[in-house]
Design a protein around this nucleic acid. Structure first.
Lengths: 195, 195
DNA sequence: CAAATTCAAAATGTATACATTATACGTTGG
DNA sequence: CCAACGTATAATGTATACATTTTGAATTTG
């Protein structure tokens, strides 16, 4: 609900109404809120309860800087650790994404895009890295989903992805890192205006 | 209690006894457990409750690889973003640590050591980076605390720290990154045997 | 004798009740 | 008329009670 914008950033999360909405009692809801607080999606203030975490432009930029570094590391590891089979699965996701691109299906394109990045990170076989990346990605989901790209930027993003996949298939770590790095550099330009 | 080893890795965490021990009811304890689960310190299995997360040697190594990359990023940012005052505070912590080293006070040495690394990361002024680093560091606390170094390795670690601080004071990013990187490379050698 | 089964004890998952604290509105005093 | 206060309402924080599931051991069965 936070990611999809149903709960607005900065707004308080009242337990009572949300319990009714979800059909559960306060106990499991509160446990979930504590979990989300640790994930960084909600703020907890003593005696005032939970509110939807609000990210400033600097927060977003900082997260993108961090996720870029994480994906660079993941890219290097992926070239070493990823199996041929795993790499071909990434290629398959990429082909799937191209279909959505040609159809102009932005939602499924976006979802597949995220899955590709997660899949590349998964190739690192570094569980901590995978977890931290997933946590960051979920926080960025909302803003990146809102950030709508123009036609030419979209085409550029697809080209960057193509370069990524090819570098991965050649297991060319420096090319992959460069492609990932450029891609996430541009990600900031794409969301800069909406935050 | 997890970090200090009072709760053994892999062992289940029974709510009842722990509630008595802490003097609280199950509700707030369970909320805390959900929080710790998100932090990665405990595992939650449906219908079986919580258990202390157990890290394999590969888990530890992967975390050290990740924390090394994070500190490298932090080091670069620290040289750009850190104020002179903040840097001098790090120097002060370093001097404090040297006293503990000369006294042979391992516990306080170790604590100050951690504070220095956190302080350098804080100089990045990147809140996400600070949080992720802190979370990882807390998971590694237990193993790194157990990892007891020999006299010569200890001396080497102190020398590495000295290099770090000097590079930071010169705002020499590449020197700082190299020093941090070497330091964390050796960290694995120091804990390798105990995991 | 081993394996499967049954049943009681105890654990987790959820709901509800109560205490405490914050909040908002109406009232009173300057 | 505005500000400050007090009270009522509603929120959060915690404890407890109840339902369901797991667990372990004794018993039964092949």
């Amino acid at each position: 609900m936070i990611i999809e914008g149903e709960l607005e950033p900065g707004k308080r999360i009242y337990e009572g109404p949300l319990c009714e909405r979800l059909g559960v009692s306060r106990t499991p809801l509160r446990e979930a809120l504590r979990y989300l607080a640790s994930e960084g999606l909600v703020d907890l203030t003593p005696q005032r309860g939970a509110s939807v975490r609000q990210f400033s432009a600097k927060d977003i930029q900082d997260m993108l800087v961090l996720i870029r570094t994480l994906e660079e590391l993941a890219g290097r590891l992926a070239c070493e650790e990823g199996s041929d089979e795993e790499i071909s699965e990434v290629r398959q996701l990429h082909n799937e994404m191209l279909v959505y691109y040609r159809e102009g299906n932005r939602l499924d394109y976006y979802k597949t895009n995220q899955r590709i990045h997660s899949a590349i990170v998964a190739l690192s076989h570094n569980e901590s890295l995978i977890q931290v990346h997933a946590s960051l990605q979920s926080k960025l989901k909302r803003v990146r989903f809102i950030g709508h790209e123009g036609k030419e930027k979209w085409a550029a993003a697809v080209a960057e992805h193509e370069a990524m996949i090819r570098a991965l298939e050649r297991r060319d770590a420096s090319a992959l890192v460069a492609a990932l790095s450029a891609h996430l550099e541009h990600a900031w330009e794409r969301v800069r205006d909406v935050v």
